[in-house]
Computed example of a mutant assay.
Amino acid sequence: MNTGVRRCDTNNLLLNTEKTKELIVDYRKNADLHPPIHIKGTAVEHVSSFKFLGVHISEDLIWMNNCSKLVKKAHQRLFFLRTLRKNHLSSDILVNFYRCTIERILTNCITVWYGSCSALDRKALQRVMKTAQCIAGAPLPAINDIYRKTYLKRAGKVIKDPSHPAHGLFTLLPSGRRYRSLRTKTTRYQNSFPTAVRLLNSAS
């Protein structure tokens, strides 16, 4: 019995094996076979993708499925935005509706996936925003600008919090003005956390 199961038993918590899934991310060419995980004799189902806190995570960390789900859900909300316009509501109200409903869908956990999603997926997200902009009759922030603003805000919180696990990754150069860039071997890694350092340096 593993530590997690023992901890749940100690705290009178029940693990639901039907809702527990196993997702393996392994990029090695000769990846080892992973034996199934068992919880009290019941094997945990292995899946290639899983929805966690509204984000569709796949084993290859390609975000096409996640973006398509967000775009589809956002398109459904555009119907209500059009209905509000047909009832002659002001642009301010339409913009507020977009920001509170549609934009929140398009930018859900955006710092996790947007940096690594494809240009095609980014265009699909942006098209939803442009459609909403035409309906509302007022300018709306671009998805890329929201991503940049959110990333900088998150990075700032990490820098100010010495207890954060990633705090030590932000180190200033001797000039004290720019942060030291992180060396990366893969584009996937370069588009994830090191993006925060590049954005901070470009904003300085």
Rank of each mutant, 00 (worst) to 15 (best):
T3F: 15
T3G: 10
V5Y: 06
R6T: 14
R7E: 12
C8N: 14
C8A: 13
D9Y: 06
T10P: 02
N11H: 15
N11V: 05
L13K: 06
L15Y: 10
N16C: 09
N16S: 06
E18M: 03
E22Q: 11
L23N: 15
L23C: 15
I24G: 11
V25N: 10
V25A: 10
D26L: 00
D26I: 01
K29C: 05
N30M: 05
L33K: 06
L33H: 02
P35L: 05
H38M: 13
I39C: 13
V44L: 12
V44R: 08
V47A: 09
S48L: 11
S49P: 14
F50P: 13
L53K: 12
H56W: 01
I57M: 08
I57G: 04
E59C: 14
D60K: 03
D60W: 00
D60T: 04
D60S: 09
L61E: 11
M64S: 15
N66F: 05
C67W: 01
K69D: 05
V71F: 04
K73E: 13
A74T: 06
H75Y: 03
Q76V: 15
Q76G: 15
R77P: 10
T83D: 03
L84N: 07
K86T: 10
K86N: 15
K86M: 14
N87F: 14
H88D: 13
L89S: 12
D92P: 08
D92Q: 11
N96Y: 04
N96C: 06
F97P: 09
Y98I: 01
R99H: 09
E103F: 09
I105N: 03
I105V: 06
T107V: 04
T107S: 03
N108V: 02
N108A: 04
C109K: 07
T111E: 05
V112T: 13
W113A: 02
Y114C: 01
G115P: 11
S116P: 07
C117S: 07
S118I: 02
R122G: 10
K123D: 05
K123H: 07
Q126C: 03
Q126G: 08
Q126N: 01
V128H: 00
V128C: 09
M129L: 06
K130G: 02
T131R: 03
Q133V: 07
Q133K: 08
A138V: 10
P139S: 13
A142R: 13
A142W: 04
I143V: 11
D145M: 05
I146S: 12
R148F: 00
L152G: 15
K153L: 04
R154T: 04
R154Q: 06
A155P: 08
A155E: 07
G156Q: 05
G156N: 03
V158H: 09
V158S: 14
I159M: 14
K160R: 15
S163L: 12
P165E: 13
P165H: 11
P165M: 12
H167W: 00
F170W: 11
F170A: 11
T171W: 05
T171C: 09
P174V: 02
P174M: 00
S175D: 07
S175E: 02
S175N: 07
S175P: 14
Y179E: 01
S181E: 00
L182D: 00
T184W: 00
K185R: 02
Q190G: 14
N191D: 10
N191G: 07
S192N: 04
F193H: 11
P194N: 02
P194W: 03
V197D: 01
L200F: 01
L200P: 12
N201I: 09
S202D: 09
S204E: 08
